[in-house]
Design a protein around this nucleic acid. Structure first.
Lengths: 234, 234
DNA sequence: ATAAAACTGTGATTCAAATCATGATTTCTA
DNA sequence: TAGAAATCATGATTTGAATCACAGTTTTAT
């Protein structure tokens, strides 16, 4: 079996992961030998809450959502994982179950490093630990700003924030400024479950934004941000 | 100056902090020599968003709230720090500002270790790093469950959850089961800003819970949980 | 290609919590 | 300890989003 990750074309998928970014070419190749690949169809679960996580999972293609099902039957989405994002880092360090599910929202390819292999990796390259720390801190920041959004901001502001977030995850700064189109990672109901409203409200608010000329929808999945500033204010 | 932290009576305050719990007596004493103490009156800010955090801050007595002021003028509380809790760990590892404020909700004594001292400490006792990792993971868990609460649960459920949380932070399991009273760390408005509702709603819901015999209020600050199970369900 | 299934838009109605208003308590503080 | 300031309770009203209902559209699978 080749040591390169065929799904990323000719690049090494490990190089796309921030935690390995400090390693040099030869070191990264040794990481790649540890990687196993797997594919998930749209709608398949990569992981169920309470389950044993096999190791570190890196999203290589496609997007996935992490979500909780509440006792009342609602779904709360906690993260959207884009290519290059990873999860499962928790089980590598702490003996604690992860309480959310992860589901592919479109066809997804992942790279996987087993817990055992990863722990040996850390011994060999201790710098990885500080990268993990950094990533955990970033997640805390994102979760805190999500709480600010859901807990203290109006529904309009939440919609605005989520559109900007998805744009930033999908495009680079120049593309956003030139109103490039991008694909929403979630359908209306998904967006609703991410920002704590209903599907109908998302529909109505998006249409309002379009009427106001702030955004332009291309079909249901694609969108252009015409006026970034009006999304930022309010 | 004595090496013991006078504010904790005869115990060493460092021993109360989970991240130092693996150290033996002699090691902990060397940590204590690095500690500086400070007092804050009720209402004083321990820290302002965007400011330079001096190092690791351990709450030794009293409680403090971490909060964000939204552009719309609302306050969203993110954490309640109880004695033994700490913050500022972020600035020790990552070159990134903290975006929230921390304010004493009652008279607070803190212990503080400077960034520089702490970094030397880590070199000497690398085990501390894994403790920090663990604590970060715990925070992520708490934030995620907070998002589930605020985003997907009814107001009733949120009130229930916050009462249980405060009880668990204030009492041990036996005391909760025997309906011991404890002091709320926040006033009505504070609770409201923690769970994303208004002060009036908190008033009304608490009164309802009392009428139903689930809780008993002693004045405004103290409370007894009479029926833990009814708080848990729903 | 076509039928089924999933998703979306939109009006009508309901409802729970926000807001507004005010008086009663409690807690500071001078 | 008296007066001021902060906090709390509670009724009346408004409001914004949830819910309900259903038709139109898009996607998926055979």
């Amino acid at each position: 079996m080749s040591e390169t990750c065929i799904n990323c074309g000719h690049s090494l998928c490990a190089r796309r992961v921030p935690i390995f970014s400090k390693l040099d070419g030869k070191e990264i190749e040794s990481v790649v030998t540890l990687i196993r690949r797997k594919h998930f169809d749209k709608g398949e679960n990569l992981f169920f809450e309470g389950g044993e996580l096999q190791g570190l999972i890196i999203i290589n293609r496609g997007r996935a959502k992490a979500y909780i099902n509440t006792p009342e039957g609602k779904e709360q989405i906690l993260h959207i994982f884009f290519p290059g994002d990873f999860f499962g880092e928790k089980s590598l360090f702490v003996d604690k179950k992860t309480e959310y599910n992860v589901k592919a929202v479109e066809p997804v390819d992942i790279c996987m490093i087993s817990k055992k292999d990863f722990q040996e990796l850390i011994k060999k390259y201790p710098g990885i630990t500080s990268k993990i720390l950094q990533e955990l801190v970033n997640r805390i920041d994102r979760l805190e700003s999500m709480i600010e959004n859901i807990g203290a901001k109006s529904v309009d502001s939440r919609i605005n924030a989520v559109l900007l977030e998805f744009a930033q995850k999908s495009l680079d700064e120049n593309q956003i400024d030139s109103a490039a189109q991008f694909e929403l990672p979630l359908n209306r109901e998904g967006i609703a479950n991410y920002i704590g409203v209903t599907r109908e409200t998302v529909s109505r608010k998006l249409n309002l934004l379009q009427e106001e000329g702030v955004i332009q929808m291309i079909g249901n999945k694609k969108i252009k941000i015409l006026d970034k500033n009006r999304l930022k204010s309010e």
